[in-house]
């Protein structure tokens, strides 16, 4: 198992290098630089700005300089926000987004997992259709709609919850978590239902049943582990996706998270911030995909032996 993790960590180094390199040149190729503005910037000013940030150097030299700084953990100064370093912006935004993502995932697993498992026990009956339909609301109603609707109902008409903010007013984390989580609930419900159905028809479940175990024990002790494999494969990218995809929810609820910084950076052509956030995100994606692969391996009895049986 440790060997497997070690290999994957080694593999991730070139992954991150490629991401850095491609992104570095990609952002510089995109039309409109960081300093273009609605009122034309006179050439002297533009040249001075570029000189301050080293953009006047040959591109390859800029690239090497960036890698050098990166090796020291320095992601450079933000172009859009003078006086702020990219490290500082990520440090400000990431904890917020991670917390939001975690709550959202709990909501998603709570709603989606329960609905999926319950539905899979009596397929094509009311016990299937009702929980699945509830779980699907989240995907029919995208965040950009779910947010305002929840705010209108719970924030404005009922006046139960704050309409925006994060950690400012008690209860202001509830609606964003539900909004972001509900999209993923549908995926998890669908995937866990399908996974469970797949597993429930397999021999070892029949064996377990034949032994006379009560149904709930069959489900919990035998079926869940195998039935959740597709969910777990989905969770890795989903959590990484939550982090970059929380932009809409963060904007609607005025949450100072990384998602807003990341998308704004792309709109602003804030080269260093795009790169910094991309590198950071790449590391997270690698880590979460690795975690979900390990988890999937651990859950799959046949694969477990392949990785050395540990866990």
């Amino acid at each position: 198992m440790w060997r497997f993790i070690g290999f994957r960590v080694l593999q991730s180094i070139p992954v991150i290098l490629v991401v850095i390199t491609v992104t570095f040149f990609l952002v510089r190729l995109a039309p409109g630089g960081p300093f273009s503005a609605e009122k034309a910037v006179i050439p002297e000013v533009k040249a001075a700005l570029e000189a301050q940030y080293g953009l006047n150097l040959p591109m390859f030299q800029q690239y090497l300089a960036y890698l050098g700084d990166l090796a020291h953990g320095d992601l450079g100064p933000s172009f859009k926000y003078p006086g702020r370093s990219v490290n500082e912006l990520i440090a400000a935004g990431f904890p917020v987004t991670a917390e939001l993502g975690l709550y959202a995932l709990l909501v998603a697993i709570g709603i989606g997992g329960i609905a999926g498992v319950v539905a899979s026990l009596r397929p094509n009956t009311a016990q299937d259709y009702i929980p699945m339909s509830v779980a699907m609301i989240g995907i029919c109603v995208p965040s950009l709609l779910m947010g305002p609707i929840l705010i209108l109902v719970f924030g404005i008409y009922l006046e139960w919850l704050p309409v925006s903010g994060w950690g400012d007013i008690p209860g202001d984390k509830i609606l964003p978590a539900i909004t972001l989580g509900s999209t993923y609930a549908a995926y998890i419900a669908r995937l866990s239902r399908a996974g469970m159905l797949e597993v429930m028809s397999q021999d070892y479940i029949r064996t377990a049943r034949a032994k006379g175990l009560p149904e709930w024990q069959v489900v919990v002790r035998h079926a869940l582990r195998g039935g959740m494999i597709p969910v777990v494969a989905f969770l890795g990218p989903a959590f990484a996706g939550l982090l970059s995809g929380s932009f809409v929810v963060e904007t609607i609820f005025q949450i100072p998270g990384l998602g807003r910084f990341y998308v704004q950076a792309a709109f602003n052509r804030d080269y260093t911030m795009i790169l910094g956030a991309t590198v950071f995100l790449a590391v997270l994606i690698v880590v979460f995909n690795l975690l979900s692969d390990i988890l999937a391996a651990w859950m799959n009895p046949r694969l477990r032996s392949q990785y050395g049986g540990g866990a």
């Binding site: 209108l152 404005i156 309409v163």
Partner: peptide
């Protein structure tokens, strides 16, 4: 739209 809702409450 979020700003308008903030104003409203």
């Amino acid at each position: 739209s979020s700003e308008e809702r903030m104003f409203r409450v």
